[in-house]
Every structure is written in C-alpha cells, then in structure tokens.
Design a protein around this nucleic acid. Structure first.
Lengths: 360, 360
DNA sequence: AAAATCGTAGTAAGCGGTTACTACAAAATC
DNA sequence: GATTTTGTAGTAACCGCTTACTACGATTTT
C-alpha cells in the first residue's frame, strides 16, 4: 500500500485518531468533545468551533464500536436471506436497506443458501453484534427441532433487548417473542387458481417449492382450496414439489412432458420456476399461452421480461422489507411507549398479463 | 413484546449476560473465560468444561463490539453499491458476501442510489465502523472535486489500517492507497462492436449510460476504437448517452424511433437498458433481430430470458465480488508479510445468442 | 450584598472484552 | 532436598467512547 514500512520496523497496527487526540488539540476535555459532537448538551459556540477544527485537522471519525459499547444501540440491523442475488430476496433486502438507512442504521446482510443450520448460526453471529433487530426473510422449514432452536434464539434476542422479525415466514408459535410481517400466500394462490379455473382450466399442474416449507405449504393450500371451492378433485399427480429455482422448473417440467400427464395450465410456485417451465415448454414445441397457460408468483421484474409476459401474483417485496425494519425498530422510535402492533400483513393481488388463455 | 413491563417500572434497558457473569457461574476469572472461548491459550480440560457449561446455561454470546474495541479487527467488510436489487450489483454483492463469509467476516451493505455525495457520506459511516475493508462497486463519476474527496477518504482508511477496494471503477490516481479489481470494459465493447461490424452492420446506435461516468466512457471507447479499426467514421447522432436503467432505454429508443435516424444495430450500454430498448422496438413493430440487431453488456440472468435471447458481453460479476474481498483482506491472511498484488483484472468475453443477425 | 440560579466544562466510572504480566502449585532436574 | 521448569489461572491495564456527578464563574434574584 501507500506507506511501505521500513524493513526492520516491528508490525504496528496503525490506529486512527481518538477522541482524546481531538480533546488535546482543541484544549478541552474528552467529555466536551463528545458533547460538541453529539449536540445533546450545551457547549459554547466558540468551544464547539475549536472542537470542529480539531476534528477536521485530525480527520477524526468516532469509533462506532466504542460508541456502541458505551451507548445503548449499535445503530445496525441484521438481515438474513437465502441468496443475495435472487430477486425475491434482493427486493426485500432493498426495502430493508432503504428503511434502515432512513432510520440512520446500517445493515448487516448474510445469506444462508437455504441451509437451516447455517441460518441458526447466523442468528447467533448477529446476536454477538448486538444489532437493534434481526430480520429473517422467506419461507422456513417446518422441522420441529429447527423451530425449537430458532424459538430459543428469539427469546435470547428479546432478553438482550433486540427483536427477531420474521418477514414472510410463519410464526414460531404462541409466546415466542417475535414480530412478523406476513403476506397473503394462501389468498394469492387461491385468487390465481380461481382465475385459471374461471378461464376454463380444470387440470392445473402445480409445480415447485420444497415440501415441508412454509411458503410452499401456504400456496398449495390456497391452490387446493380454490379447487375445492369449484368442486374439482385434487389429483396428486398434478402436484409436483421439489425446490424453488429455475433449474428445478426446467428439469421437472421436462420430466413431466416425457409422461402422458394431462393438463392445460401450469401454476409455478414462483416466477423463477415459471421461467424454467417456460423454457421446457418451448423446447418441447408447446406454445404459451396457446397450448398451455402458465402463471407464477411474486411478480419479480423478470416476469415482465418473459415472452409471453407472465401473469403472476404481485407481492410488495420492497414494502415488506421496509415494514420489517419499522416493526423491528419500533421500540427505538421517539415515543418509546407507543406499543405498535407486533404483526402486519401485506396484501397480494394477481397481475394479468399474457401467459394465460381461456381453455379452448 | 413478550414481557410487558409493569406499568410503573422505570425503563431499564435489558442487557445480556457478560463474560463476568460467565466467570462467576463457572467460578473462574474473566481471563480464563476469555481464553477458554478463544482457545488461544492453554486451559485445563476440566476448567474449559465448567466454562462451557456456564456459557450454555446463561445463553451467553460474546459482545462483538467490545471484542472489536479490545481486539484488532471488527471482522466486518463494508460494501457500497448503487442499488441492492439491481442484478449487476446484486451479483457482485453475492460474491462479496460469500467470500467475506468464507473468511469469517460479516458484511455491511449500503446503497447510494447513484448519489455521489451520499457515497462519500457512506464511506465515512464505514470508517466509523472500522471495517477491515470497504469495497466500492461500479462506475464512478469523473468529477474532480468528488475524486479528490474520495482520495482523501482512501488515505484516511489506509491510515486507519483499513483498505479501500475499488471494484469495477477507475483508479483514484497514482499514489492514492487503494486496491482494485478491474474488468475489461473497453475490450469487451471492442469485441462486441467488432462482432457487429463483422455481421455487416455499419450504422450502430450506442445507447445508455451517463456521460462522464467511467463505465460508459470505457465502453464507448472500445466501441469507437472498433469503428476506427474498421475504418468507419464516428457519427455523434449514433451515440445516445443519458443513464443506465430500463426506463432510459425504453424512452430514449422511442424518441429516436420518432426521428429518421438510420441504423441497423443497437449496442445498449448494459442488459437492462437493452430490455427497455427491446420493448420500444417491439412496440414500434420492429422485430429483433430481423429488422434490427440488439446487444447488451454484463450478461445478467435476464439477458437469457429476453426473447430473442440477448447477445451480450459476459462479465464475471460474482468473481469480481469475491476478488474484491480477497484483495481487501489480504493483509489479514496467515502470512501477513506476503504482499499480494494491489490490482487484478478479470476478463470479459462476448456471448452470442439470438439477438443479432447479419445485415441483409 | 448575599444567595440562588444558570451556563459550561471537567472528573471519572463504567460498557465488555483481550492480554501482558504475575503468581503459584506440581513436575522435572540436579 | 533444593531449584528450575512447566502448566494454569488470576490481576489489572487498556481499547475509545458516554454520561452522571461535580465544580465554578457569571447572572439574577431577593
């Protein structure tokens, strides 16, 4: 780097100017510097100016770690998602970052890649950081052992004066101290399925999403409820679970096309799966929507770039992220007494584009 | 939350167990607890076990802020990007998160939304946090005042024992202590332009990217060099700068189509702009690639979902993020003496898909 | 003019860790 | 048996800030 040390010099970690240095230069006490900078205590104008000069001349910035240790907050929120580059998570993360930033917070982000053990470990890492809130995003496993462990962490965070916010995932059970921002997975799936049925489709293939995963379960529940409401029997062959992700949609659709399964529409568990399904269909010479209708879920930007443009369920991802932060920081807000609600549900609605046609 | 306080109770900030609590429970000194946990100093097996029991029973996790204050590192890297949800940045961020995580670091992420004042402020915020490295991603303004200010921050970070890593943006000048991971913008644009020319295109419209922005400048330079190499004169009317982003591509293309400008191919400054251009072309009844050829830059996943699938320049975004972290943490690695190189350039190459046809 | 009030600034006790230095049995060496 | 070495563990001094408490000259009040 810029300052090559003399060969014989012992390794000395370079350190920045401290508040004591500023105090020395300004000729005041450290308390005065702290106050001049914080502005929460009267300091004479002339003194304040001397301090500011010293700060500038030393290129001083306060040490946030020391500040966090002495003060009451780290001014940080943590967010745990599946994958930083997956648009579903990225849009929620954008909302989190924007709201956190608006609240003067910085944002620690980390990815689990779908590994629930790792998720637990990451929550612990965030607990070490003493973040003001930790936000857990996206569907969760329903494994009881895992749920128990996560509940324990929720209690620990609560005891530490932090909050665990669940964003788009189910409750950890009654009495477990968490806040939640939920969205209507079941209702969105119901509405979409009902729409497909209204277009004359009766054999609808539901594809994607891990089984025993909260998001999948809700969407599937809405799907089945819509079927039942219209008096259509469930057919296990028409429900193909497995994973989220484009490759899954592509591969599983290919496999199905190799069988003689009969269906006129496909409900993909999310838009990304739908993209994979679309490719498989295309490669088989099947046209969407003329030969088969296709819908997705989430309404990520890609849905609008696919051809045909994908009919899907809109989920206000960025808003969810914002709300998660609001909920998490509610205790820090001005009127600390005001008890905000602990859970908030955002709505979903279907967006009709070009990928569905009435069954001929 | 879970433990509603009794109405009259004074507000007491809940605090977590400390190392002193653990020491008391285990019946040892705090030093012993610290050592048992760090494992960098011999502790009798029996003692270690008592400590571990105490830790478990108290649900103790060490306070990372205190640790950072007393120790030498925060085990954190900071990354500053334009937009969390933009795939270009999201993929780089994914690389950063993954490598940081592999190195036992957490990742502070923040977005500038393209505001360079904000970018400067964010670097200061990161300096306060004493992160091990701060990574600045994406093209930068060439405004001299801005560059001067950023250079000052690079020096400050260096003096603090941190590093400023520039990822995909030009140097701040000789002597400014930074590390860099660069990619060959100029070369990629040259190769792509040359390819278009080889397909018979001579009037190529270059569209998108802010002027006086490093990324645009390099891509445009490659574009012009390819033209020159083939003896084609530059035509100012064929260079349409302005911004990145889908809306810009759409709007500007619409405007151009309202004129009688002649061109047979469009080189969009990036894939997202290309998506907007594609829509404008479509709406005008122009078919790609039959009526006009279209190419992009970056090779984000969306490029492969467009129809026609977009021919574009591949940039190894995730790798760039990983390398930025490697470079930034190089001083922390095992053999601290080994001076790794301060700058690294990753290659780009063109990906031929379906959006270009030879000019008829 | 004495007393009370006000505006400013300093002193020092934490916050929760790490680690250099010291202490002291038990084991090894002479 | 006396001395040195070794293995463990304790003491206490930081790291860089915030803030309760104290101090004190200048105004006001009585």
């Amino acid at each position: 780097m810029s300052t090559p040390s003399i060969t014989a010099a012992a390794h000395v970690r370079p350190t920045s100017a401290t508040i004591a240095d500023v105090a020395a230069v300004a000729g005041v006490s450290v308390a005065t510097v702290s106050r001049a900078l914080a502005g929460n205590y009267p300091v004479a104008a002339a003194t304040r100016e001397r301090v500011q000069h010293a700060v500038a001349s030393l290129n001083y910035v306060p040490n946030a770690n020391a500040r966090a240790l002495a003060g009451a907050t780290t001014r940080t929120v943590g967010i745990i998602i599946n994958d930083v580059a997956d648009p579903f998570f990225a849009y929620i993360a954008r909302g989190v970052e924007r709201q956190a930033s608006a609240d003067g917070r910085l944002c620690l982000i980390m990815a689990t890649n779908g590994d629930k053990e790792r998720e637990l470990a990451l929550v612990d890492l965030l607990r070490e950081r003493r973040t003001d809130a930790v936000i857990l995003v996206g569907g969760a496993s329903d494994d009881p052992a895992y749920r128990k462990q996560m509940a324990a962490r929720a209690r620990a965070l609560d005891a530490d004066g932090s909050v665990l916010v669940l964003c788009g995932r189910p409750s950890l059970g009654p009495g477990v101290p968490t806040k939640m921002v939920a969205y209507d997975n079941e209702g969105g799936a119901f509405a979409m399925t009902d729409y497909l049925i209204s277009q004359g489709h009766r054999r609808i293939l539901y594809i994607g999403g891990p089984s025993n995963f909260s998001t999948t379960a809700s969407r599937l529940a809405g799907f089945n409820r819509a079927l039942a409401a219209r008096g259509i029997a469930e057919d296990p062959a028409l429900v193909q679970q497995g994973a989220f992700g484009r490759p899954f949609g592509y591969t599983r659709m290919k496999e199905i096309l190799a069988t003689d399964l009969d269906f006129s529409a496909v409900f993909a568990a999310n838009d990304v799966v739908a993209a994979g399904v679309l490719q498989a269909l295309e490669e088989q010479g099947l046209r969407v929507p003329d030969d088969v209708s296709l819908v997705g879920y989430d309404d990520v930007p890609m849905a609008n770039e696919l051809r045909p443009r994908l009919t899907t369920v809109h989920v206000p991802l960025e808003d969810m992220g914002r709300e998660a932060v609001r909920l998490g920081l509610a205790d820090f807000s001005h009127d600390a007494g005001a008890s905000s609600d602990d859970t908030l549900t955002v709505g979903t609605h279907i967006i009709i584009r070009d990928s569905v046609k009435p069954r001929s």
